[in-house]
Design a protein around this nucleic acid. Sequence first.
DNA 1: CTGATGACCAGATTTCGTATCTGGTCATGT
DNA 2: ACATGACCAGATACGAAATCTGGTCATCAG
Lengths: 251, 251
Amino acid sequence: MVEAVGDVRTERERRAEHILDTAADLLLRHGYRRVTIDDVARSAGVGKGTLYLHWRSREELFLGVLLREMAELLDELVECLRTEPADVLPHRMGSLSYLAAMRRPLTRAMFVPDVDMLGKLVHTDAGQAVQARKTQINLVYYRTLMEYGLVRPELTLDQLVFGVSATNLGFYSATALLPSALDISVEDRAASLAHVLRSAFEAPDALDHPDLTTVAEQLVREYTRFRDVCRVEALGRGREVQASTTKSTGE
Amino acid sequence: MVEAVGDVRTERERRAEHILDTAADLLLRHGYRRVTIDDVARSAGVGKGTLYLHWRSREELFLGVLLREMAELLDELVECLRTEPADVLPHRMGSLSYLAAMRRPLTRAMFVPDVDMLGKLVHTDAGQAVQARKTQINLVYYRTLMEYGLVRPELTLDQLVFGVSATNLGFYSATALLPSALDISVEDRAASLAHVLRSAFEAPDALDHPDLTTVAEQLVREYTRFRDVCRVEALGRGREVQASTTKSTGE
DNA sequence: CTGATGACCAGATTTCGTATCTGGTCATGT
DNA sequence: ACATGACCAGATACGAAATCTGGTCATCAG
């Protein structure tokens, strides 16, 4: 087993971050379809092969960009939860997520979805895997809310998950699909979403719930963990050193 | 002016309906992209030119199919409203519409939207015009509800329109975009939509409102009128007899 | 004379072979 | 040990020729 020197590891990370910065910039300016590996390498000032030292394919590289974006978004949410525990409530979480996602072009494109910017990226198998992850963390969220009685007691978990997901989907898609949505400010749209989520899914007395802080802390823990996973995966595993020739038995 | 014998007019209509039947069948089986004007004419057993006696273009013909489908859907809703005035309430209307739309492959494709079946049809200018019509009739519906105090009093018309539209959009899109939606029956999805619409937009005492029957009747009138417009437009205006050469002054 | 028809045409679409581009590898250099 | 860019196969873009199809209208039937 190799215990690398701290410096080396950090250097790798810095480079990976820099490449992601470049890729994000190009992605934003030209769209997934038009940005080539060579473009990214040249703009980042590294050799093309170097990219493959971090990510196994073009797809993984750009997925890394998206993952890092998600991580930043999670950071924002965690920050909110820390300063204001009541933000765990579905209607607060919902509108905060909506606003945060809409503020960032890349996440907005991801949710809307902007086919011109991200193209087929989200529809690849790896892209679906990311979506699945998001679903998974959401499930944790819903389950926790339910456990602590913050949602309407008459709802089953399935009903909650489907209902909230469908509702959110509608508001996210509205930007692109409802022409009338353009006449309404983002804030008003977020407020509308909050209203729907609160009245349809939130327990009436949720705001006065005694365990609000506990739930918030628990969610902060979960989200932080998930954010870290996203961060790490964003930087790429590179080509796993596969002991092919030498049967290195751990030395 | 020509007052045609009743028979002739009916004959025209019968033919138009028959052509629409054929077109609908082909549309369902092969999709908009693949069905040609010749296919429809041949299958319907009429000359190609005959189609242009009813519709000005291929696009209008297939839009006719959709319009007739919408008319049938409206018929269903009107029937519900007649037998049960309480169905005017947003949550009832919402789930009834959802169920009716999902039951019919063509309307489902229209709402979902199934890009393979309808292709670019809905995105043409004429297609957008149909959408605009739908928006318009919806506006009438919302305005009426508001006028009679059947929706939450704190909501403005804009908030109501946007909120309900976005919510609906989410549930309609869920079929295609949320993988988890497939594990839930159509009825349960409709029930979920109803729950959201009721709790978010409906006045708490709406069910006991004294004017429910009046509102239902008014809506029946509006919807019937709209349905008739759809029916007529579905059969096509054909080439308007444009007195070009002869200045026919009624003779 | 009215109304239906299908041969006809221009423009759109598809096909298919060629040329270019690009993701990914790896021998080489540092 | 690690970074690099020349290199290659397969994907993609391109373009011209061939085919198809929406729409028209001269012609014909009743």
